[in-house]
C-alpha cells in the first residue's frame, strides 16, 4: 500500500523537523509531503532538509485549501492511502500503524482523543466546543463520534478522490466528516494519544470562536441537508 503523509504547515520551523523525523522513525516506508501554506519563516527549507517533499503555496490559502492540495497531490500521484497530521507535533507517529491498520475496514479512520480515557487535557471552553460538535455530528450522521475536531486522519483512495474534489476551505474537520457520510463512506475512530499543544499556540482566538461555532454549525447542517449523490450509495 503506497501511503502519503500530508502535513499542512504555516510558520512551523520550530517543530516541523521533529515531526518528519518522528514519522521516519516509526513508518520509514511512507512518503511525506509538507504543504507549506505561505509561511514567513524557514519552514520550507527545514522541511526539505528533513527529507520531505514540499509544496509551497504562493500565498496563505488557509488550512482547508492547504489540506486539499495534499489530497489532490495524493490523488494525482496514485497513492492508496493518505494520512493528515499536524505540523506542531500534536500527533504521534507511533499511532500511524494503528490508523493504517484500520484502513481496510473503513474509508476514513479518525484518531480520537476520547474513545478511551487518555492523558490529553485542554481548556474548558475547548472541551465544550469539541463536545458540542461531536453531539451535532453524531446526531446528523446517526453514528457516534467522540472527536470530530481531530486533525489526525487516514483516508483510503475513495476518500482521497472525494476530498480532492471537495474540501471545506476553513475549519474543515467537522464538515468533512458529514460530507463523507452523505456519500456513503464508512468512517471509524481509533483511540490515540495526543500531546497537549504548547502554551499559546492555538490558532483560534476567543474573537474567532463565535464565528467558528456559527460557520461550522451552518456547514454541518447544510452538508447534512444535501441529498445523497446518486450511484455512490448503491456502489458503496
Amino acid at each position: 500500500m503506497r501511503t502519503l503523509i500530508i502535513i499542512p504547515a504555516y510558520n512551523e520551523e520550530g517543530s516541523i523537523a521533529q515531526v518528519i523525523g518522528d514519522i521516519r522513525e516509526h513508518a520509514p516506508e511512507v512518503d511525506i509531503v509538507v504543504v507549506n501554506d505561505g509561511s514567513k519563516d524557514r519552514t520550507e527549507a527545514i522541511a526539505r532538509d528533513a527529507g520531505a517533499e514540499v509544496i509551497t503555496m504562493p500565498f496563505n490559502v488557509g488550512i482547508g485549501g492547504g489540506m486539499q492540495t495534499g489530497y489532490l497531490y495524493a490523488y494525482q500521484n496514485g497513492y492508496d492511502a493518505a494520512v493528515q497530521m499536524d505540523a506542531d507535533g500534536q500527533h504521534r507517529a507511533a499511532d500511524l500503524p494503528k490508523l493504517l491498520a484500520a484502513i481496510p475496514y473503513s474509508d476514513l479512520v479518525i484518531g480520537s482523543r476520547y474513545v478511551e480515557q487518555t492523558a490529553y487535557r485542554s481548556s474548558a471552553t475547548r472541551r465544550v466546543g469539541i463536545l458540542f460538535f461531536s453531539k451535532l455530528v453524531s446526531f446528523v450522521t446517526r453514528q457516534r463520534f467522540t472527536d470530530t475536531t481531530s486533525g489526525f486522519r487516514a483516508a483510503n483512495r475513495k476518500v482521497i478522490a472525494l476530498y480532492a474534489n471537495y474540501y471545506p476551505s476553513d475549519y474543515p474537520e467537522v464538515e468533512s466528516i458529514v460530507y463523507l457520510k452523505r456519500r456513503g463512506c464508512r468512517l471509524a475512530e481509533v483511540p490515540v494519544e495526543m500531546r497537549s499543544r504548547e502554551a499559546g499556540r492555538s490558532s483560534i482566538t476567543p474573537l474567532k470562536s463565535v464565528y467558528y461555532m456559527l460557520k461550522v454549525t451552518l456547514s454541518v447542517l447544510m452538508s447534512a441537508s444535501r441529498v445523497r449523490v446518486r450511484g455512490v450509495k448503491t456502489s458503496g
Binding site: 471545506p168 476551505s169 464565528y211 460557520k215 451552518l218 456547514s219 447544510m222 441537508s225 444535501r226
Partner: peptide, 13 residues
C-alpha cells in the same frame, strides 16, 4: 443557495 453550494458558508453568514 448555500445548500446547493452556489454560495459559500462564510459569505452567507
Amino acid at each position: 443557495l448555500v445548500r446547493r453550494q452556489r454560495l459559500k458558508e462564510q459569505y452567507s453568514l
